[in-house]
């Protein structure tokens, strides 16, 4: 079988767990198919970081560090990835499921005449024909999707495969962009980034509030709990629509889809669209005054009660636990 190429996305020069997860996935397919897995990094990543990819079983590590590629241009990134896929004879190109892969993977698929399946949630059910499983209707069903083209492009849903170490002697090889970077047609003119905050998409624990919080002024204890747990804060759609919290915190079908280990829903009734955005969480805790609220059908643990009365003793109990361990 043809080789497996994994695009290893970096964030400010560092790889995240989702990148390593995509690597492990690609390495496992390569093992099953009896071929090799190659990692491709684009942008400025130090050798000391690149070599971390060898912990997860790749045969080779390619790096394309061109100053014109320090910010994302979808056309340029797609050109680099598809060229490498062609020159290496890749049969499958693997991405992690991120904003960047949403931007770039479809373009790569066109360049390679390859069918694309985004957000695959497990290993292929079969390699020939190539069938993968993914969630559709935001988790209301699973679908087996067959890719019929010779070359395949897939992205791996976050936290769906896990990371396992498997160290190799992979060496780092520098490659050139192989195209005219002066033809890049987008320019990044400003970057605004909050620092020190736990990012919603990376968070292992998410603490989320809904309309039952009653007022944007009531978020203090929720933020305190989040800080204690090293969690990201989130909210339901009515809360972001009211402007109580920023849109970037909206979790649900039309907002962010999250898959943390632990999701707290405070004062969230659990509309079908909200549950669709959080149903991949390992554990869901719901606190709501209405014992009939649909969120309790999605939750693993629940408390019927007012969030403002439940949060203070909850914070105390977490503090006590943290002081003991």
């Amino acid at each position: 079988m043809n080789k497996i190429l994994i695009y290893t996305e970096n964030f400010d020069g560092k790889f995240k767990k989702s990148t390593f997860e995509a690597v492990c996935y690609g390495v496992e397919i390569a093992r099953q198919a009896g071929t090799e897995a190659i990692a491709l990094s684009i942008g400025d990543v130090a050798e000391s970081e690149l070599i971390n990819l060898s912990k997860y079983g790749v045969a080779r590590i390619l790096t394309c560090n061109n100053p014109m590629l320090s910010t994302l241009d979808n056309q340029a990134y797609a050109a680099v990835i598809s060229q490498v896929a062609k020159s290496e004879g890749a049969g499958i190109v693997v991405f992690s499921a991120s904003n960047t892969s949403k931007a770039v993977a479809p373009r790569v698929s066109v360049k390679l005449n390859a069918g694309l399946v985004f957000s695959v949630s497990g290993l292929p059910k079969s390699l020939n024909p190539f069938v993968v499983v993914k969630k559709v209707f935001h988790g209301k069903a699973f679908a087996d999707v067959m890719i019929k083209s010779d070359v395949k492009v897939i992205s791996i849903a976050q936290n769906s495969f896990g990371v396992r170490e498997n160290t190799t002697e992979a060496v780092i090889e520098s490659i050139s962009a192989g195209f005219d970077t002066s033809a890049i047609k987008t320019k990044v003119t400003n970057v605004e980034k909050s620092t020190g905050k736990v990012l919603l998409n990376d968070a292992e624990v998410v603490v989320s509030g809904g309309r039952g919080m009653k007022s944007p002024d009531n978020w203090k204890p929720l933020e305190e709990l989040a800080e204690l747990l090293g969690a990201a804060t989130a909210c339901s759609r009515p809360v972001s629509d009211e402007g109580w919290r920023p849109h970037s915190e909206h979790v649900g079908q039309t907002g962010k889809i999250v898959a943390p280990n632990l999701y707290f829903a405070f004062g969230i009734s659990g509309a079908i669209q909200h549950v669709a955005g959080v149903s991949s969480s390992k554990f869901i805790v719901a606190v709501n005054t209405d014992k009939e609220a649909p969120i309790f059908q999605a939750a693993d643990y629940g408390i019927v009660g007012d969030v403002q009365k439940v949060l203070p003793p909850l914070i105390e109990a977490v503090k006590k636990l943290k002081s003991e361990v």
Partner: peptide, 10 residues
């Protein structure tokens, strides 16, 4: 280039 072959409920 892709086709759904089967579905499963969650």
């Amino acid at each position: 280039l892709t086709g759904f072959v089967n579905y499963e409920p969650p």
